[in-house]
């Protein structure tokens, strides 16, 4: 049997709808709410059933063409993982070293991952840009950007 993108998609959403329907039962209601024509569980219940029916419909009508199989060839997954990890590191750095430093590090990291190796370009394309954005936000637009926990711990906030 050929498993195509439609089959995978249908199965994933069938599981999602089942899980969604299961957790719908966990939604707490006020006493007597279950007798109301509409409560916090009404729409989620409808959606869980609808999602289930549509997923089954997708599986039943799925294309069986071998050309519709999920092909992961030609995609550069390692770079995607690296960039997404960089974004997560950026979010952590924002809390610890503040906006300016984390922006500079994020940009240098991004340029580097995408193949830029010239140190001069790495610095020129990141530091002035980050300083400009930081200046525009904190000085011109008066937005408070926390200095980062590391600095407040070291030098006091």
């Amino acid at each position: 049997m050929i498993i195509t993108k439609d089959h995978i998609g249908g199965l994933v959403f069938l599981c999602l709808s089942a899980a969604y329907g299961y957790y719908t039962g966990d939604i707490s209601m006020l006493p007597g709410d279950e007798y109301q024509p509409f409560n916090a569980q009404t729409l989620p219940n409808i959606l869980a059933y609808l999602g289930g029916i549509l997923s089954i419909a997708l599986i039943l009508t799925a294309s069986r063409d071998p050309g519709d199989r999920l092909s992961l060839k030609g995609y550069d997954f390692p770079i995607v993982v690296k960039l997404l990890v960089l974004v997560i590191l950026f979010s952590v750095a924002l809390e610890w070293v503040g906006f300016l430093l984390s922006t500079i590090l994020f940009l240098i990291g991004g340029y580097w991952l995408l193949g830029e190796r010239r140190v001069k370009i790495l610095l020129i394309a990141s530091i002035p840009f980050a300083v400009f954005i930081w200046f525009a936000l904190s000085q011109l637009l008066d937005i408070y950007l926390a200095p980062g926990r590391l600095f407040t711990t070291m030098f006091g906030g």
Binding site: L83, V87, T103, F106, L107, G109, G110, Y111, L114, G115, E116, I121, A125, F129
Partner: peptide
Amino acid sequence: RQILIPLILF
């Protein structure tokens, strides 16, 4: 692109 893409991401 290696300069533009990180900027758009940012």
